Computed example of a mutant assay.
Amino acid sequence: MPEKLAFWSIPVSLFVLLLKVFAWQLTGSVAMLSDALETVVNVVAATLAFFAVRIANKPADRRHPFGHRKAEYISAVAEGVMIIFAAFLILREAGAALSNPHLDDVPIFGLVVNAIATLINGAWATVLLRAGRRNTSPALIASARHIFTDVFTSLGVLVGLGLALVTAWLILDPLLAIVVALNILWEGWKVTRESVDGLMDVSLTDAELTAIDGLIRANMQGALQYHDLKGRRSGKAIFAEFHLVVDGTMQVDAAHDISDQIETAMVAVFPASTFLIHLEPDSELHMT
């Protein structure tokens, strides 16, 4: 499912790009140009996301025993960098237009074309975001968030150009493009930061650690204590480890059964995840 959606993002983004380029040619608006430039990034990002999702879904192999899931983070980082680059391109175009703001003769039709592109973008972003959250796919989520940024950009452009036409204050066009660029820059920074966190093995969230803690406590009957829980996420998979303290006289197979019981419960909640349990004797009990 994620791979199919990632593939269809490519033709959808191309179609939206064509509509926005057409809208820009009809209006001559630098704000419309900025909107189209951001959609160019969408096309490249959609292509990257497709290949990243394909790679991430490959099973573990001898060279990659922990799987290929981090490919999605690499794609998301690249997308964030491209978003930032697009923002600087828009700032350059808007700065050049400040001294000579203008619109062409058919702006109303251009606004209608841009509005259609925005509706298509909004619907597709909603589909991607729901699928990305359902499948814990960083690449799909990053693409959806970027497209939503594009949607809000387009809405701002439509409102701003409408005001420029009503008031005849054409300076609103390049000023609006600058606001758009700053918003895109902020979104690019957020996407890049979050994706780098994934590559750097940032810790699981407090909610995820609390959920794992609850599963361990509910299934550790026969053990004395657990401690030193830590974990990280790689795409939809979780890698977590902790120390489980048992009676020093307990048979190895009995201690192993307890570990299996805990691991089975956790994998049921976090499929395709890996949990490492380090057994310790009661001499390692931590005083609370």
Score class of each variant (00 low, 15 high):
L163G: 04
P107W: 10
L165C: 10
L161T: 03
I83H: 08
L155T: 06
R133G: 05
V202K: 10
L128A: 08
I83F: 09
P174F: 02
I84F: 14
A94R: 01
V113E: 05
V159Y: 10
I178R: 03
S203W: 04
A168N: 15
P101F: 01
N121P: 14
V166L: 14
N183G: 14
R130H: 15
W124C: 05
L111W: 07
L111E: 03
L140N: 06
M200P: 01
R145I: 15
L204P: 00
A207Y: 00
L204S: 00
T118F: 08
L89A: 13
M200E: 09
T167P: 02
V180W: 12
N121K: 12
L176E: 14
L161V: 11
T126Q: 14
E208V: 00
S99T: 15
D104M: 14
A164S: 08
W189M: 07
D197T: 07
D105F: 14
P107K: 07
T118W: 04
V77F: 01
V202P: 09
N114Q: 15
V77C: 03
A96L: 06
P107V: 07
A115Y: 12
A142R: 07
L204V: 00
W169H: 13
G188P: 09
S154W: 06
A207T: 02
P174G: 01
F85W: 09
D197Y: 07
R193N: 03
M82A: 13
A97P: 04
A177Q: 06
W189A: 04
A164G: 02
L199V: 01
D197R: 08
V180N: 11
L119C: 15
T167A: 02
H146K: 08
G198Q: 04
W186V: 08
G122R: 13
A177K: 03
I171P: 15
V127D: 08
L163D: 01
T167S: 04
E93M: 12
P138Y: 00
A125T: 05
D206Y: 09
L111F: 06
L89M: 12
A207E: 06
G122S: 14
E194M: 10
H102E: 09
G198A: 01
L176V: 07
V77T: 05
V179L: 05
V196D: 10
I184C: 01
I90S: 08
I184A: 02
A125Q: 02
H146P: 11
V77N: 05
D206Q: 10
F152S: 02
I90W: 10
I90E: 12
L103C: 11
A78H: 03
I83Y: 11
T205F: 00
T136L: 14
G198V: 00
P138A: 01
G188I: 02
L182R: 14
S143L: 11
V157K: 01
D197P: 13
